[in-house]
Protein backbone atom coordinates (compact mmCIF):
# COMPACT_ATOMS: atom_id res chain seq x y z
CA UNK A 1 0.00 0.00 0.00
CA UNK A 2 2.68 2.45 1.00
CA UNK A 3 4.56 1.63 -2.20
CA UNK A 4 1.48 2.37 -4.28
CA UNK A 5 1.10 5.72 -2.58
CA UNK A 6 4.73 6.54 -3.21
CA UNK A 7 4.36 5.70 -6.86
CA UNK A 8 1.24 7.77 -7.12
CA UNK A 9 2.98 10.67 -5.43
CA UNK A 10 5.95 10.33 -7.74
CA UNK A 11 3.66 10.35 -10.76
CA UNK A 12 1.79 13.39 -9.45
CA UNK A 13 5.07 15.19 -8.90
CA UNK A 14 6.05 14.47 -12.48
CA UNK A 15 2.63 15.44 -13.83
CA UNK A 16 2.45 18.75 -11.96
CA UNK A 17 6.16 19.40 -11.73
CA UNK A 18 6.86 19.63 -15.45
CA UNK A 19 4.36 22.43 -16.27
CA UNK A 20 5.37 24.27 -13.08
CA UNK A 21 8.97 24.04 -14.24
CA UNK A 22 8.07 25.45 -17.66
CA UNK A 23 6.07 28.30 -16.11
CA UNK A 24 9.10 29.04 -13.93
CA UNK A 25 11.18 29.23 -17.11
CA UNK A 26 8.69 31.74 -18.59
CA UNK A 27 9.15 33.91 -15.51
CA UNK A 28 12.93 33.68 -15.58
CA UNK A 29 12.95 34.46 -19.30
CA UNK A 30 11.17 37.77 -18.61
CA UNK A 31 13.44 38.83 -15.72
CA UNK A 32 16.01 41.39 -16.93
CA UNK A 33 18.69 40.22 -14.48
CA UNK A 34 18.32 36.58 -15.56
CA UNK A 35 18.52 37.67 -19.19
CA UNK A 36 21.69 39.70 -18.58
CA UNK A 37 23.48 37.32 -16.27
CA UNK A 38 22.44 33.91 -17.60
CA UNK A 39 20.72 33.93 -20.98
CA UNK A 40 23.27 36.21 -22.65
CA UNK A 41 26.25 34.09 -21.62
CA UNK A 42 25.65 31.65 -24.49
CA UNK A 43 26.25 34.36 -27.09
CA UNK A 44 29.34 35.63 -25.22
CA UNK A 45 30.82 32.12 -25.09
CA UNK A 46 29.88 31.16 -28.66
CA UNK A 47 31.33 34.38 -30.10
CA UNK A 48 34.70 33.85 -28.43
CA UNK A 49 34.84 30.08 -28.84
CA UNK A 50 33.85 30.16 -32.50
CA UNK A 51 36.30 32.95 -33.35
CA UNK A 52 39.00 30.83 -31.73
CA UNK A 53 38.03 27.58 -33.48
CA UNK A 54 36.96 28.96 -36.86
CA UNK A 55 39.60 31.67 -37.36
CA UNK A 56 39.37 32.73 -40.98
CA UNK A 57 38.08 29.30 -42.15
CA UNK A 58 35.93 29.46 -45.27
CA UNK A 59 32.30 28.43 -45.38
CA UNK A 60 31.64 25.48 -47.69
CA UNK A 61 31.20 26.37 -51.35
CA UNK A 62 28.96 24.11 -53.41
CA UNK A 63 28.72 22.94 -57.02
CA UNK A 64 26.03 24.40 -59.33
CA UNK A 65 24.20 21.04 -59.13
CA UNK A 66 23.80 21.49 -55.35
CA UNK A 67 21.80 24.73 -55.68
CA UNK A 68 18.22 25.06 -54.39
CA UNK A 69 15.75 24.86 -57.31
CA UNK A 70 13.86 27.77 -55.73
CA UNK A 71 15.59 30.18 -53.34
CA UNK A 72 12.78 31.56 -51.18
CA UNK A 73 12.73 35.19 -50.08
CA UNK A 74 12.34 36.30 -46.47
CA UNK A 75 11.90 39.50 -44.45
CA UNK A 76 11.30 42.65 -46.49
CA UNK A 77 10.82 41.93 -50.17
CA UNK A 78 9.84 45.45 -51.31
CA UNK A 79 11.02 48.52 -49.36
CA UNK A 80 8.41 51.32 -49.13
CA UNK A 81 10.91 54.18 -49.30
CA UNK A 82 9.95 56.45 -52.30
CA UNK A 83 13.60 57.26 -53.12
CA UNK A 84 14.39 53.56 -53.21
CA UNK A 85 11.38 52.78 -55.42
CA UNK A 86 12.34 55.61 -57.79
CA UNK A 87 15.82 54.09 -58.15
CA UNK A 88 14.28 50.65 -58.69
CA UNK A 89 12.21 52.10 -61.58
CA UNK A 90 15.37 53.11 -63.42
CA UNK A 91 17.29 49.93 -62.65
CA UNK A 92 19.40 51.75 -60.03
CA UNK A 93 21.19 53.64 -62.84
CA UNK A 94 21.68 56.78 -60.70
CA UNK A 95 21.82 55.00 -57.35
CA UNK A 96 25.00 55.35 -55.29
CA UNK A 97 26.30 53.46 -52.27
CA UNK A 98 27.68 55.74 -49.55
CA UNK A 99 30.74 54.66 -47.54
CA UNK A 100 31.54 56.87 -44.56
CA UNK A 101 32.26 56.98 -40.83
CA UNK A 102 35.76 56.07 -39.64
CA UNK A 103 37.30 56.03 -43.12
CA UNK A 104 39.96 58.38 -44.50
CA UNK A 105 38.19 59.02 -47.84
CA UNK A 106 34.39 58.85 -47.53
CA UNK A 107 32.72 58.51 -50.90
CA UNK A 108 29.91 57.15 -52.99
CA UNK A 109 29.93 54.36 -55.55
CA UNK A 110 27.61 53.57 -58.42
CA UNK A 111 26.69 50.00 -59.37
CA UNK A 112 29.07 50.20 -62.32
CA UNK A 113 31.86 51.40 -60.00
CA UNK A 114 31.26 48.32 -57.87
CA UNK A 115 31.08 46.02 -60.91
CA UNK A 116 34.46 47.38 -62.06
CA UNK A 117 36.10 46.34 -58.80
CA UNK A 118 37.51 42.84 -58.25
CA UNK A 119 34.61 40.40 -58.03
CA UNK A 120 34.09 37.15 -56.16
CA UNK A 121 31.52 34.52 -57.11
CA UNK A 122 30.55 31.88 -54.56
CA UNK A 123 27.86 29.20 -54.25
CA UNK A 124 27.04 29.09 -50.57
CA UNK A 125 24.36 27.98 -48.14
CA UNK A 126 22.07 30.58 -46.58
CA UNK A 127 20.92 29.46 -43.12
CA UNK A 128 17.89 31.25 -41.73
CA UNK A 129 17.56 31.65 -37.96
CA UNK A 130 14.20 29.86 -38.34
CA UNK A 131 15.95 26.68 -39.43
CA UNK A 132 15.67 26.43 -43.22
CA UNK A 133 18.59 26.53 -45.67
CA UNK A 134 18.88 27.47 -49.34
CA UNK A 135 21.91 27.27 -51.63
CA UNK A 136 22.51 30.00 -54.19
CA UNK A 137 25.22 31.69 -56.21
CA UNK A 138 26.33 35.20 -55.32
CA UNK A 139 28.64 37.62 -57.13
CA UNK A 140 29.92 40.82 -55.60
CA UNK A 141 32.83 42.92 -54.47
CA UNK A 142 34.73 41.80 -51.37
CA UNK A 143 33.79 44.20 -48.57
CA UNK A 144 37.40 44.48 -47.44
CA UNK A 145 38.44 45.73 -50.87
CA UNK A 146 35.92 48.56 -50.67
CA UNK A 147 36.97 49.42 -47.11
CA UNK A 148 40.62 49.59 -48.17
CA UNK A 149 39.69 51.81 -51.12
CA UNK A 150 38.14 54.27 -48.69
CA UNK A 151 40.95 53.94 -46.16
CA UNK A 152 39.39 52.33 -43.08
CA UNK A 153 40.88 53.97 -40.00
CA UNK A 154 42.58 52.25 -37.08
CA UNK A 155 39.85 53.15 -34.59
CA UNK A 156 37.12 51.44 -36.63
CA UNK A 157 35.84 48.31 -34.85
CA UNK A 158 32.55 47.50 -36.60
CA UNK A 159 30.99 47.95 -40.01
CA UNK A 160 27.34 49.06 -39.99
CA UNK A 161 25.01 48.46 -42.96
CA UNK A 162 22.13 50.93 -43.31
CA UNK A 163 19.27 49.57 -45.40
CA UNK A 164 16.38 50.99 -47.43
CA UNK A 165 13.74 48.75 -45.84
CA UNK A 166 11.95 49.34 -42.55
CA UNK A 167 9.59 47.64 -40.13
CA UNK A 168 6.87 49.97 -38.78
CA UNK A 169 8.98 52.98 -39.74
CA UNK A 170 12.15 51.72 -38.08
CA UNK A 171 14.92 51.27 -40.62
CA UNK A 172 16.66 47.91 -40.90
CA UNK A 173 20.36 47.86 -40.15
CA UNK A 174 22.98 45.30 -39.29
CA UNK A 175 26.63 45.25 -38.22
CA UNK A 176 29.63 42.92 -38.21
CA UNK A 177 33.07 42.99 -36.62
CA UNK A 178 36.32 43.45 -38.53
CA UNK A 179 37.12 39.72 -38.50
CA UNK A 180 34.01 39.12 -40.62
CA UNK A 181 34.52 42.33 -42.61
CA UNK A 182 37.99 41.14 -43.66
CA UNK A 183 36.87 37.57 -44.39
CA UNK A 184 37.39 36.69 -48.07
CA UNK A 185 33.80 35.40 -48.49
CA UNK A 186 32.24 38.57 -47.06
CA UNK A 187 31.03 40.33 -50.19
CA UNK A 188 28.56 43.00 -51.27
CA UNK A 189 26.55 41.02 -53.80
CA UNK A 190 24.98 42.71 -56.83
CA UNK A 191 24.21 39.46 -58.65
CA UNK A 192 22.46 36.24 -57.65
CA UNK A 193 22.31 33.01 -59.67
CA UNK A 194 24.00 34.79 -62.62
CA UNK A 195 21.40 37.57 -62.88
CA UNK A 196 21.08 41.04 -61.38
CA UNK A 197 20.12 40.76 -57.70
CA UNK A 198 16.29 40.62 -57.59
CA UNK A 199 14.39 43.03 -55.34
CA UNK A 200 13.11 40.19 -53.13
CA UNK A 201 16.71 39.29 -52.30
CA UNK A 202 17.84 42.87 -51.62
CA UNK A 203 18.51 44.76 -54.89
CA UNK A 204 20.68 46.54 -55.72
CA UNK A 205 23.19 45.36 -53.11
CA UNK A 206 23.16 42.93 -50.20
CA UNK A 207 25.72 41.73 -47.72
CA UNK A 208 26.86 38.10 -47.73
CA UNK A 209 28.52 37.16 -44.44
CA UNK A 210 28.64 33.42 -44.95
CA UNK A 211 29.46 32.19 -41.45
CA UNK A 212 26.46 33.84 -39.80
CA UNK A 213 22.69 33.40 -39.97
CA UNK A 214 20.42 35.04 -42.53
CA UNK A 215 19.34 38.13 -40.59
CA UNK A 216 22.96 39.36 -40.58
CA UNK A 217 22.95 39.43 -44.42
CA UNK A 218 21.59 42.98 -44.74
CA UNK A 219 19.55 43.58 -47.93
CA UNK A 220 18.93 46.88 -49.80
CA UNK A 221 22.26 48.27 -48.49
CA UNK A 222 22.32 52.06 -49.03
CA UNK A 223 25.15 53.15 -46.78
CA UNK A 224 28.13 51.52 -45.12
CA UNK A 225 29.52 53.13 -42.01
CA UNK A 226 32.71 52.24 -40.17
CA UNK A 227 32.26 52.87 -36.43
CA UNK A 228 34.30 52.59 -33.26
CA UNK A 229 31.29 51.52 -31.17
CA UNK A 230 27.82 50.15 -31.83
CA UNK A 231 26.32 52.21 -28.99
CA UNK A 232 25.45 55.19 -31.19
CA UNK A 233 23.47 53.35 -33.88
CA UNK A 234 19.80 52.42 -33.43
CA UNK A 235 19.18 51.25 -29.87
CA UNK A 236 22.84 50.29 -29.56
CA UNK A 237 22.75 46.52 -29.93
CA UNK A 238 24.12 46.42 -33.47
CA UNK A 239 21.08 45.49 -35.52
CA UNK A 240 17.35 45.83 -36.02
CA UNK A 241 16.39 42.43 -34.57
CA UNK A 242 19.10 42.72 -31.90
CA UNK A 243 17.50 46.03 -30.78
CA UNK A 244 13.90 44.88 -30.96
CA UNK A 245 13.78 41.17 -30.38
CA UNK A 246 16.57 39.83 -28.12
CA UNK A 247 18.25 38.19 -31.14
CA UNK A 248 21.99 37.60 -30.78
CA UNK A 249 24.32 40.11 -32.42
CA UNK A 250 26.76 37.25 -33.01
CA UNK A 251 24.79 34.77 -35.10
CA UNK A 252 27.42 32.13 -35.94
CA UNK A 253 25.18 29.43 -34.43
Amino acid sequence: MSRRLTRRRALATLGLGAPALLLGCDRLGRAPSFRDMVLETGEWLSYRAQRLVAGQALAREYAPSDMSPVFRTNGSTRPRDPDYLAHAETGFADWRLAVDGRVARPGTFSLSDLRDMPARTQITRHDCVEGWSAIGQWTGVPLWHLLQQTGIRAEARYIVFHCADDYSGRPYYESIDLADAAHPQTILAYAMNEAALPMGHGAPLRLRVERQLGYKHAKFVMRIEAVATLAETGLGKGGFWEDRGFYEWYAGI
Binding site: L22, D26, G29, L39, E40, G245, E248
Partner: peptide
Protein backbone atom coordinates in the same frame (compact mmCIF):
# COMPACT_ATOMS: atom_id res chain seq x y z
CA UNK B 1 2.65 25.96 -25.29
CA UNK B 2 2.73 23.53 -22.36
CA UNK B 3 5.72 21.79 -23.97
CA UNK B 4 7.79 24.79 -25.04
CA UNK B 5 10.14 27.34 -23.42
CA UNK B 6 8.88 30.02 -23.43
CA UNK B 7 5.26 28.93 -23.57
CA UNK B 8 4.30 31.58 -26.14
CA UNK B 9 6.00 31.98 -29.52
CA UNK B 10 9.40 33.66 -29.14
CA UNK B 11 12.22 32.31 -31.30
CA UNK B 12 14.83 34.79 -30.01
CA UNK B 13 14.23 33.93 -26.34
CA UNK B 14 14.12 30.18 -27.04
CA UNK B 15 17.47 30.46 -28.83
CA UNK B 16 18.97 32.26 -25.82
CA UNK B 17 17.85 29.42 -23.55
CA UNK B 18 18.96 26.73 -25.98
CA UNK B 19 22.36 28.17 -26.90
CA UNK B 20 23.25 29.07 -23.30
CA UNK B 21 22.22 25.74 -21.78
CA UNK B 22 23.93 23.94 -24.66
CA UNK B 23 27.15 24.86 -22.83
Amino acid sequence: GWATIPSTYNLALARRWHLTFAW
